[in-house]
């Protein structure tokens, strides 16, 4: 048993599953990047297009501020800060996990089965599917807005506040990644309904670009406790900007984002496993 060279080495190297998944992700993403490079002009056009399309959200905010001086009691730099955090975090997730909506199509045309007979984790393969560098367009415009927001907001920077900025980007990105994975898991149930996840992912980043004071109280409750999007930027940003916390959350909540992100990941992982199990028992 296991004398063949191929399986032998796999067991030696395949120490950690996460390492194995990361390696597979890199390999497949690399293939997609090379594929997209075969159409060079298209690639350039789509990067620019992505930058413009995603930038429209901020243009809308600028248009609003051409008419008013504050929105929900927040100034333009403060909203730019919120926008930059939300859009960058989402951009990171979109770049790494953003193509999972093709899963339903892969199940319908049967090509998902090909992923299942390969010796690497399926989730890594699905996440890297259709990996597209054009999504750097979104991150670019988001980082630009964030940079301007950081410079323009009136904040007495402390060590804790400085630290919170990268923490928000990373935990926020992870929370959005978990949403993408949960959305993919949902496609195991409804193969045509990939668009549902847009409501949570794209919808999520859009709503976080505006201050929590804009939304109804029940709505804010929902996106804090039910779907904890508030921890992407609202709560920690309230600490940085010294604004009242949404729903009167305690002070420490500003630092809870990594924990929330970890819980989201665990839940999304469970959902994915359940979805994959149901696919493998029903074949659809």
């Amino acid at each position: 048993m296991g004398e063949t060279s191929a399986s032998g080495t796999a067991e030696t190297f395949g120490g950690s599953r996460a390492g194995e998944a990361l390696r597979a992700y890199r390999l497949i993403a690399g293939m997609w990047i090379r594929s997209s490079m075969t159409y060079r002009t298209s690639f350039v056009v789509t990067v620019l297009g992505n930058l413009l399309v995603t930038g429209l959200d901020f243009v809308a905010i600028l248009l609003m501020f051409s008419q008013v001086d504050s929105l929900g009691g927040w100034s333009l730099p403060e909203i730019a800060f919120l926008y930059g955090l939300s859009a960058t975090a989402f951009g990171l997730a979109d770049l790494t996990f953003g193509s999972m909506d093709v899963l339903g199509g892969r199940m319908r045309d049967g090509s998902f089965d090909i992923l299942l007979v390969r010796p690497v984790p399926v989730l890594a393969q699905v996440a890297a599917d259709h990996f597209a560098l054009r999504r750097l367009g979104r991150i670019t415009q988001a980082v630009l807005v964030l940079g301007w927001g950081l410079l323009a907001v009136d904040v007495d920077w402390t060590a804790a506040k400085v630290l919170l900025v990268p923490m928000m980007l990373v935990s926020g990105g992870v929370i959005f990644c978990a949403l993408f994975v949960a959305g993919a898991a949902f496609q195991f149930l409804a193969q045509d309904a990939a668009e549902v996840q847009n409501a949570f992912t794209y919808g999520g980043t859009t709503l976080l670009q505006y201050p929590p004071t804009v939304f109804g109280k029940d709505f804010v409750r929902g996106v804090t406790f039910l779907l904890p999007l508030a921890f992407v930027n609202w709560v920690p940003a309230a600490y940085v900007l010294e604004r009242p916390y949404p729903l009167g959350l305690p002070q420490w909540a500003a630092f809870a984002s990594p924990l929330v992100a970890a819980v989201c990941c665990a839940l999304a992982g469970l959902a994915w496993r359940a979805g994959l199990r149901s696919y493998r028992s029903t074949g659809s």
Binding site: S7, M31, S35, T38, I114, V117, R118, P119
Partner: peptide, 21 residues
Amino acid sequence: TRLAHRIGVVFGQRTTLWWDL
């Protein structure tokens, strides 16, 4: 995944090859 190292599969109407490469 362990078995995957020891088997080969060809699905006649679906390719495992990379279309543009």
